[in-house]
Amino acid sequence: MAIENVNVKVKINGKERCAKVEPRTLLTHYIRDDLGLTGTHIGCDTSQCGACSVMVDGEVVKSCTVLAVQADGSEITTVEGLGDVNNLHPIQQGFWEKHGLQCGYCTPGVMMAMVGLLKQNPDPSDEEIREGLEGVICRCTGYQFIVEAVKHAAQIMRESEVQLVGEER
């Protein structure tokens, strides 16, 4: 019996998208190769580094550890959905102003993980931010600045009551 490809339909960064893929396709490959959104990175491919983190139905997950078919019908936000140069999301503003990145490779995943953290805890302590960073690895090891960036972002969001992504369902 031949294995049939499956239609995977998602709403990604507000747009309906669809692609026919093999059931074994990883969500991260679906997003990058089939939908052409290469902001989501692959760092380790073994569930450790978190560079591939995206929001699925409002929860941050490692997209290299989820099958695309499992995400069929869901709402996804990737780093491209946060904001652009003229209209930065508070987390991007935080990273910009507090120098939260060096080479930038881990940054999309770290930002998505931190959006996920702030959704669960809008006013995290330094320790809670560091705990939240457990699932991401920054090879440039700029963690101190990342913590500063997240605190800054949290403050902006609390003050302006900006809607977090992945809220609307």
Binding site: S53, E59, V61, K62, A113, Q120, E134, G135
Partner: peptide, 9 residues
């Protein structure tokens, strides 16, 4: 268990 992302899934 694991980390934020693992616990979500």
């Amino acid at each position: 268990i694991g980390d934020l992302q693992v616990r979500n899934r």
